[in-house]
Amino acid sequence: MSDEERLERALHAHASTVTPTPDWDDVEQRAEELRRRRLRRRAGFTAVGLAAAIVLVVALIPLLNGDERTTVAVTAPSTTTTGPTTTTEPTTTTTPSTTTTTVPLPLARPQNAIWPFTSGASFRDPSQAALSFARDYLGMPAPVVESTALSARVVEVRARSDRPSVTSVTVAESGGNWYVTGARTRNIDLVSPEPGKRVHSPVRVTGTSTAFEAQVNWEVREEGAGAGRKLGEGFFMGGSNGQFGPFDAQLAFTTPSRPSGTIVLFTRSAEDGSVVEATVVPVAFG
């Protein structure tokens, strides 16, 4: 007998021993149970889908608002491109896709402006001016705008989205462009010198502060000097661990070649050493 025949016989012999009893009612009950289970699952999916849709909409609202702001910011320079052609001013190089334009004659620049530099870009958007200042002047790693209070001429910036401290950047508008005139963090409250004061080396600084291990870093910079270029630097102690303590320090710096500059007081992250927050005041030298 071949294997195939043996198999066929064995299968039929075994199968003939199986004598089940049909029960159609049981099939109907199972079908009903299955239908209910599918409905429940479908309802579950629908609920999850609805929840996801709500989350998506909520998440999109700020993005959409952000888009509007971007649209305004982007369209602003394109109106300036039409300006030179109609008024036949000197040719201005503009890039419609960015918010920056080169301005050859910064006549409208405010006296106390510290950013952008006279030779630098100009900003049609106060947030862009503040972000550029935080990144390129202060050296913050990945600054983000926390809030904008234009009536108070303040843009609040975090050095990185997860940083606890906020630096309030003061801005001023002139001739359609936005400038940074100073910055302040509540953790470093500089009482003197006041903004715009005439100072010479060594300059005495007083105020209150709180910082990690009480250490507040300082730099004196002259106009046109970005992050890392300074006339003098060092640190002094104030309060720590959230407790405000007074500071009173003498900051010595080399002779400036320009008539104005800034005093920059800042703290660094204990984690990676990057700039966390800063108080910046403009000063005159001489």
Partner: peptide, 18 residues
């Protein structure tokens, strides 16, 4: 076992019923 075989067959008919 036959019990499981019956169970599987009943379930199959229930699915087809739906």
């Amino acid at each position: 076992d036959v019990g499981t075989a019956e169970d599987v067959t009943q379930d199959a008919f229930a699915k087809v019923h739906l």
